[in-house]
């Protein structure tokens, strides 16, 4: 059974937006947690979240000072801003609304409920008191939705394109967090050694990677190991390595996959070259920049091959 290009594109974006909603919620939640543990005056600013989400232009339009209230309001409750949680949820909903016929019925119901929940609760959840409960609810609802499609969809094109969308978004987010987060922490080196482990721990937490890291690597959170883990750990489902392998697995059943295969192999080769222990901050940034370029080409190849079918 084949699939309309338009429908494939929409389920792909469903995968991406759902993942974006979940990872944005995790990121803000992890940061919110960390901030409370750090002595006054030593906290890194909230603008780092804006930089991770590539939302500087939107932020500049809305406020002059990137303080906690402004940043959290932007990310948690501004439905119009493309970097916000409600925006991603609403976009996910729009994409399911028009593809209900290829998805399990519960997916529509659950995404719709998530949308209604966010619409009702987001405004109240900007302040610290309700923030965490809200973010965690978003994460767990997103996980339920992921559980439903993973466990009920036939391994057909719908499954393939949601999964590819989800993993590409996840890999993209991981590289951004490492890029901005690691640069930030490394940039502070020497001045705040005492809280560095907290910062690296937060970085892991934002990737749901802390527990896995502690079991796999050990109880000491070290910069090199953290970056390696998030990028390279083959057994960790949120590592970039794992995501790329997952996307690679879904390509063979698709027709005309040559270009996408070529790009994904390029991405995987690039990632394999990341095995040095002692990179410098600038090298790391250049490396990630490159990797993100390849991820973006992969998105382009997917769109060109399967979503834009020419003819008349």
């Amino acid at each position: 059974m084949t699939m309309l290009s338009r429908v494939a594109e929409r389920v792909y974006w469903l995968g991406r937006y759902l993942e974006r909603a979940e990872s944005t919620a995790r990121l803000v939640d992890a940061y919110h947690h960390m901030v409370m543990d750090i002595p006054r005056g030593s906290q890194p600013g909230w603008d780092i979240l804006v930089r991770i989400l590539d939302a500087q232009p939107i932020a500049d339009e809305r406020f002059r000072v990137a303080n906690e209230a402004n940043v959290v309001r932007l990310l948690v409750s501004e439905a119009e801003a493309s970097c916000s949680l409600p925006y991603a949820i609403q976009a996910a909903r729009e994409n399911v609304r028009t593809t209900r016929d290829v998805l399990p019925e519960e997916v529509w119901e659950l995404v719709n409920e998530l949308y209604l929940f966010a619409r009702e609760q987001a405004d109240k959840s900007v302040g610290r008191r309700h923030r965490q409960a809200f973010l965690q609810e978003v994460v767990s609802r997103a996980q339920v939705i992921n559980g439903v499609w993973r466990n009920t969809l036939c391994r057909d094109h719908a499954y393939r394109f949601i999964k590819i969308g989800q993993l590409l978004e996840r890999a993209d987010m991981a590289t951004r967090i490492i890029d901005v987060g690691a640069a930030d922490i490394l940039g502070r080196e020497g001045t705040q050694q005492a809280i560095d482990h907290l910062l690296w721990g937060t970085l892991l937490k934002s990737q749901s990677a802390l527990g896995a890291y502690l079991r796999q690597v050990g109880p000491v959170v070290e910069p090199d190991c953290v970056v390696r883990f998030v990028f390279m750990e083959p057994s960790f489902p949120r590592s970039v390595h794992f995501c790329l392998r997952g996307i690679r697995q879904e390509l063979p059943p698709l027709k005309h996959n040559e270009e996408a295969l070529r790009v994904i192999e390029r991405a995987r080769r690039k990632l394999r070259r990341f095995d040095r222990q002692d990179w410098e901050r600038d090298e790391l940034h250049a490396f990630i920049d490159d990797l993100q370029g390849v991820l973006s080409s992969l998105h382009g190849a997917i769109c060109d091959t399967w979503f834009r079918v020419d003819g008349a």
């Binding site: 084949t2 699939m3 309309l4 290009s5 494939a8 079918v309 003819g311 008349a312």
Partner: peptide, 10 residues
């Protein structure tokens, strides 16, 4: 008449 699908025109 063809529809645009991920497998090409059908």
């Amino acid at each position: 008449v063809y529809m645009r699908t991920v497998d090409g025109p059908v």
